[in-house]
């Protein structure tokens, strides 16, 4: 029999608490969602929950609208974030670290507080809340997630590659298009994933910044679980599974670069 100290000393022993954690809080809930999605409240197998979703045009529309909003947010974040990351990584700033920190700084504050503050800001200037406010809020909240991975890849990029491109006859625009942009794709991919995934499922921002006028898919799920009572849990589980599928799909796009992207995150 092994000594206790040998068991404690073995590295694999230390993994057990984490394995337990993962089983309890990741695998088990996933399994539950899966089971709930395919059963009735009484526990019989059914596809009714999915049929109900596809038959409710309001739900499907919300779903499509949510994805559109998430895509739009991602695109805006990319358009705003890439230049910011590029400037931070390449310009000869005396304090690039400080600038990077300033971008990250808002993340130190809970996003609900920030969103509430945004609402007050809009109210103060009498700007009507709605779709525009929603997009603004989403971009404001998720922009750092786009900047950071791109900044990271750009900063790690070998400066001599840019010089080599110049040396071979490329002007500034060509250097960017042929060297910098292709080499920063891993950062772009992970930025997209990090912005798109959470924006698809967000609901608090939409509720606060549109005064519940616009319903996103996340809100739909939240309502199914929160307001629908136990009867609606199965439906909510089915909606969650559909969303999970969409998010899962996005993380596979860009297949080859995905691994690199993961390493950047």
């Amino acid at each position: 029999m092994k000594k206790l100290s040998a068991i404690i000393g073995a590295r694999r022993t230390w993994a057990w608490p984490y394995v337990l954690f993962l089983i309890l809080f990741v695998l088990l809930p996933l399994l539950l969602i899966f089971v709930y999605a395919f059963t009735t409240p009484t526990g019989e197998f059914t596809l009714k929950n999915f049929v109900q979703f596809f038959n409710t045009s309001e739900a499907v529309n919300t779903f499509i609208y949510s994805i559109a909003i998430a895509l739009l947010t991602t695109i805006i974040c990319l358009l705003l974030g890439y230049p910011a990351a590029y400037i931070m990584a390449t310009a000869e700033l005396k304090t690039p670290a400080v600038m990077a920190m300033l971008f990250i700084l808002p993340m130190w504050i809970n996003f609900l507080l920030r969103t509430l503050a945004t609402v007050e800001l809009f109210n103060m200037f009498s700007i009507p809340l709605g779709e525009g406010a929603l997009l603004y809020g989403m971009c404001y909240d998720f922009l750092p997630f786009m900047i950071y991975p791109i900044y990271n890849t750009l900063q790690k990029m070998d400066r001599s590659l840019i010089e080599a491109a110049h040396d071979l006859g490329a002007n500034g625009r060509e250097v960017f298009a042929k060297v910098i942009l292709p080499l920063s794709t891993p950062g772009i991919y992970s930025g997209i994933i990090m912005v798109f995934m959470p924006t698809v499922s967000t609901f608090a921002i939409s509720e606060l910044l549109t005064r519940n006028k616009i319903t996103l898919f996340g809100s739909l799920i939240q309502r199914a679980f929160g307001e629908g009572g136990l009867q609606m849990w199965n439906y909510g589980a089915a909606l969650s599974l559909i969303m999970l599928l969409i998010i899962g799909l996005t993380s596979f796009f860009g297949n080859k670069d995905e691994q690199e992207a993961q390493s950047v995150i």
Binding site: D158, S160, E163
Partner: peptide, 10 residues
């Protein structure tokens, strides 16, 4: 044209 110390291949 330059040949760089660390090659700088793309």
């Amino acid at each position: 044209n330059t040949v760089f110390q660390k090659y700088a291949l793309f």
